[in-house]
Design a binder for these strands. Structure first.
Length: 849
RNA sequence: GCCGGGAUGGCGGAACUGGUAGACGCGCCGGACUCAAAAUCCGGUGGUGGUGACACCAUGUGGGUUCGAGUCCCACUCCCGGCACCA
């Protein structure tokens, strides 16, 4: 049972001696000095012995699912992890004190590239390497005292985990949400292998140094685009998400309304060119066309013209990363074709250009250099005409020679459409084209389907068998999981399972003839797209999810790095909706509230081994203890902001905990406290003042922890409160009782942040029941009463004086007192008072001529 | 290149809804304790001028709105995150 909130002078209390430290079990004398390691050992032993963080589903209690993004087991925790997990732990512990049934699980995002790299470097297979890392990092998390329910731990590299995503993949395949097509990868022609984008450095393979080529291979895709509309619309309902993240996702999904226009080619036998534009109002300014290097028109031209062929080949000598493509110098080659403008009938040259992407829209564009910056730069370079067709509605006329004008405006040089606004012209031109059968209004999305095939070893096998006769055949459910062999030799490049007949040789489930398994593995975002659901029922080997998921989901608070704002969070949202439509979960969105933490920097730069500016949290835990690390990291900056690491700041945190320890020690050493002497009624002024400060602080800290998540200001407020304690150490029983109330509340308020030291201090304060079972204290409204208020007085917005007035003074009185203040008199003397603005509780501004 | 974010003392940061700029901590300076040092405790600490009361300047840069701007608007500089195969 929980001990109630701390109550002071409860009516009818007969025992006035609140505690007797000398008779408390275990500690006859409190340690004089703060010994973080002894304290942390004791607290952790208690939690383990009592299984304090094990949670069970309890429909009678309000649940709170608090989740931090699980780590990739790279070997050791880094400071970013410590920050992420401390934030999650503070929120979890706070919510628990608020009476919620809190689930805080932890697991391992265990598949991924680094294990393969480590395998090459150290000649350890990815499996054992990963599991060793997990064991070490788990011990680190335990040392940090995070309140995880370890019984739910999972690792995505375990077949008991990935079998269910193989199962779901086949369900989605069945449903038509999975398909196979060719798609481009980074190909290293020397190592004969596919490279990840990060393995392409300046266009070359990181190991071989060879120029990377884009190459097409067959891959599996998930139809995330089937959910484009819902993924976009549902963002509006995610009130608990940061605006910045929602904006990024909206832009990523990129819904746009435009017109698909057909341009005939002068050679009547030629297929027409289809383009998509969001600016049909600029159609009359189109002076040339451009197609992607992979566009059939460019490919056909390459057959005829060696120069075009060379250009198209050179376009392939770039990785697949959009950043690389966009940063290239805009180049093109003119084709031996002319397009016909659908309205003017003018002939337009057609280029193949490296800035047109086959993956977006139709792979062809109409270029309007007057009103698009890229088109403008390209036109300048190749001396193509630039025509102004949009004019500003008012103000200076547009100078098209200085640069493209991309705003909306009024049409000029557009024949029958002159004088229309851009918005009207959009509709009129779209109608015109539709009538002529040359175009139609269309919605275009930037979002592309999710390619999930990876040509790598250390991932979950894709449960498909390729049969010469039957094609791609799903592995029967009864044969799942397809287990990844872990006892492999990992040397050189290429995936071991692609060379392992024992893995890939099998028979076709349909016809029984010899067939081969798919040797690709899933993108690791696949695992991280549903792990949060599996934590609800990680032990179920009969089903992916069960009714426990209905109790815990959705996640009430998700915490992770801002770098996951788009990909991970969008894939997880998509997965959740797909799982919902499979009847696996009951809600629409996986994460009700999202907190995106900032990076941790050292000397103004991201920590990295190459820069040699890393901080190892383990060394810190070893020297100053977990509580100090937790305290510093929460005090140094609010969670969403980048955090600048400071060793000096760590010392400051340790010093604070020593002071706190000493404060409690000295207080306890004084012997029992008569708490009734601190009854709120009739306290001396300075005692009432401290008590008011306490309850004001409690109100602020509660708000900071619950609503604002600004733990740095919560800690600062507690420090301020502690700094006021000496005002009441006056040797009176009343002062001592108030100080006692303050100290107990300080320990409670700090409990979510520094759980070990507060656990021990709470016991030293004479409580038989552990702090972990205690509720968050309540604010005593009676303590907040003030007789007087201070107002700041400004003259013309500059601070000139301060006045104290009775709390219930009316505005007229405040105004009079403000005008009468000495320094206000000096600044208003001989000038006319024009206006007096009174801001309640705060300030008076006297406006003079 | 495109999308998102940030910039406040010597440093990390505070100022929550347009209302006291610099809370809290670090560092530094001075003092106490000590044979001495460390640790600890007490006091001071944005800049300039003034013995002082005070005054002026100051939130990346330049403009604007307002009685009042760190906060809102416009333009720019630099830094950070993401860009679909790092996680």
């Amino acid at each position: 049972m929980r001990e109630g909130g701390v109550r002071w002078s409860a009516p009818g209390r007969t025992l006035s001696l609140r505690f007797c430290p000398r008779t408390t079990r275990r500690s006859r004398f409190m340690q004089t000095d703060y010994d973080p390691h002894a304290v942390e050992r004791e607290a952790q032993a208690y939690w383990m012995e009592h299984d304090s963080y094990r949670v069970r589903e309890d429909p009678a209690r309000e649940k709170f699912y608090c989740l931090s993004m699980f780590p990739y087991p790279s070997g050791r925790l880094h400071v970013g992890h410590v920050r992420n997990y401390t934030i999650g732990d503070v929120i979890s512990r706070f919510q628990r004190m608020r009476g919620r049934n809190v689930l805080q699980p932890m697991g391992w995002d265990a598949f991924g590239l680094p294990a393969e790299n480590a395998a090459l470097e150290n000649r350890v297979a990815p499996g054992p390497w990963t599991r060793e890392n997990i064991a070490y990092m788990r011990s680190q998390l335990k040392q940090l005292g995070f309140a995880y329910d370890w019984s739910r731990e999972l690792a995505t590299c375990d077949p008991s985990y990935y079998r269910w995503e193989q199962w779901l993949f086949l369900r989605l395949l069945d449903k038509g949400l999975v398909y196979r097509r060719k798609a481009e990868v980074n190909w290293d022609p020397v190592d004969q292998t596919v490279l990840a984008n990060e393995q392409v450095v300046d266009g070359r393979g990181w190991r071989s140094g060879a120029l990377v080529e884009r190459r097409e291979i067959p891959q599996w895709f998930l139809k995330i685009t089937a959910y484009s509309e819902e993924l976009l619309a549902a963002l509006d309902g995610l009130d608990g998400w940061p605006e910045a993240v929602k904006t990024m996702q909206r832009n990523w999904i990129g819904k746009s309304r435009g017109v698909q226009i057909r341009f005939d080619i002068a050679d009547a036998a030629h297929e027409p060119l289809e383009v998509f534009t969001t600016r049909p109002d600029t159609l009359m300014g189109a002076t040339y066309m451009a197609v992607a290097a992979d566009h059939p028109v460019a490919q056909a031209a390459a057959e005829r013209d060696p120069e075009v062929r060379a250009f198209c080949d050179s376009c392939r000598q770039v990785g697949t990363a959009e950043e690389d493509l966009e940063k290239q110098e805009k180049k093109g080659v003119r084709l031996d074709l002319e397009a016909i403008h659908p309205i003017s009938g003018e002939r337009l040259p057609v280029f193949v250009a490296n800035f047109v992407l086959m993956a977006y829209g139709t792979g062809a564009i109409m270029a309007v250099p007057g009103h698009d910056e890229r088109d403008w730069a390209f036109a300048r370079k190749y001396e193509l005409p630039i025509v102004k067709v949009i004019e500003r509605a008012e103000g200076e006329p547009v100078d098209i020679d200085a640069g493209a004008f991309t705003d909306y405006g009024v049409l000029v040089n557009s024949g029958a459409f002159d004088g229309l606004t851009s918005a009207d012209a959009f509709d009129r031109i779209a109608e015109h084209l539709a009538r002529e059968g040359r175009g139609a209004v269309q919605t275009q999305w930037r979002l592309r389907d999710w390619g999930v095939s990876r040509q790598r070893y250390w991932g979950a096998p894709i449960p498909i068998i390729h049969c010469a006769d039957c094609g791609a055949v799903p592995v029967p459910e009864s044969d799942l999981p397809v287990v990844l062999p872990e006892d492999v030799e990992f040397e050189g490049v290429g995936s071991p399972i692609k060379k392992d007949p024992a893995f890939y040789e099998t028979s076709c489930p349909q016809c029984g003839k010899p067939a081969e398994r798919d040797t690709d593995t899933f993108d690791t975002f696949f695992e991280s797209s549903w792990y949060f659901a599996r934590f609800a029922c990680a032990d179920n080997d009969e089903a992916m999810l069960d009714e426990r998921a209905d109790y815990w989901l959705p996640v009430d608070q998700y915490i992770g790095g801002i770098e996951h704002a788009i990909l991970h969070l969008l894939y997880a949202r998509f997965f959740y909706k797909a799982m919902r439509d499979e009847g696996l979960v009951a809600s629409d969105e996986p994460f009700r509230n999202l907190l995106t933490q900032g990076m941790v920097l050292k000397d103004g730069a991201k920590m990295s081994k190459s820069k040699g500016n890393t901080v190892d949290p383990q060394a810190m835990i070893d020297s100053v203890g977990a509580d100090t690390v937790r305290l510093f990291i929460m005090f140094a900056a609010p969670p969403e902001q980048t955090l600048e690491w400071s060793d000096a700041g760590v010392d400051g945190a340790l010093r604070f905990l020593r002071r706190l320890w000493k404060l409690v020690h000295d207080h306890v050493e004084h012997g029992p406290v008569d708490v009734d002497a601190g009854a709120p009624e009739g306290l001396a002024d300075h005692h009432h003042a401290l008590r008011r400060k306490l309850h004001e602080t409690l109100a602020k800290v509660t708000d900071d922890m619950e609503r604002r998540y600004t733990f740095n200001t919560a800690i600062a407020a507690v420090m301020e409160l502690i700094n006021e304690i000496p005002t009441c150490q006056d040797g009176t029983a009343e002062g001592r009782a108030v100080v006692h109330e303050v100290i107990e509340h300080v320990v409670l308020m700090l409990a979510p942040i520094v759980p070990h030291v507060t656990h021990v201090l709470w016991r030293e304060l004479g409580h038989g029941e552990a702090l972990v079972a205690h509720d968050w204290p309540a604010v005593d409204e009676r303590a907040l009463v003030r007789a007087e208020l201070e107002f700041v007085v400004q003259v013309n917005g500059k601070l000139r004086d301060r006045i104290r007035v009775a709390a219930d003074a009316d505005e007229e009185t405040i105004r009079e007192r403000a005008l009468a203040a000495d320094n206000v008199q000096r600044h208003t003397e001989g000038r006319t008072v024009r206006k007096v603005i009174v801001v309640p509780q705060k300030l008076v501004n006297v406006v003079v001529a």
